[in-house]
């Protein structure tokens, strides 16, 4: 599968978006959940986050973060979620959403849930980057020593 590395896996993208979003925002966008069976969790735990020595060398253990995971079955579709934080409802919603995105309703949920989440995340990132850009230093030379 040579294309696997260049084309982003759409499931990977929506799972990341669902993990990063604010639980309250996801709840507001999908207040009602379709009937589903819990396969595992929701379970609160920790994930050890690794860095690299010098940013590019061997891995080292930086510290843990809280994560809640959940797996659900919705008809024939199985949905999984690992989401940052300790919100069980967030993990269930993200797992149900992952399952729904594998069904015929995917396009509709893409439009009503994922698209707004994506737009809001992009706007928040752009605002942060714009504030950072405003603090970028413009140097101008006053006197150069060798000009004397």
């Amino acid at each position: 599968m040579p294309s696997a590395q260049t084309e982003p896996n759409p499931r990977k993208l929506w799972m990341g978006l669902l993990a990063r979003c604010a639980p309250a925002r996801l709840a507001a966008l999908m207040p009602d959940l379709p009937p589903h069976d819990l396969l595992r969790g929701p379970e609160i735990g920790a994930v050890m986050v690794q860095g690299r020595v010098g940013g590019t060398g061997q891995p080292f253990n930086l510290g843990e973060m809280t994560v809640t995971r959940c797996s659900v079955r919705l008809g024939d579709a199985v949905g999984h979620a690992h989401v940052q934080g300790r919100d069980r409802a967030h993990a269930i919603r993200a797992a149900v959403m992952d399952a729904l995105m594998q069904t015929e309703q995917a396009a509709s949920f893409e439009a009503t849930v994922l698209a707004p989440l994506k737009a809001e995340e992009s706007a928040a990132r752009a605002l942060r980057a714009a504030k950072a850009a405003a603090t970028k230093v413009e140097f101008f030379t006053l006197v150069r020593g060798e000009d004397k």
């Binding site: 819990l38 396969l39 595992r40 969790g41 379970e43 797996s71 079955r73 199985v78």
Partner: peptide, 9 residues
């Protein structure tokens, strides 16, 4: 394989 875990871990 996804079934049969603890229900109330």
């Amino acid at each position: 394989a996804l079934l049969g875990g603890f229900q109330t871990a």
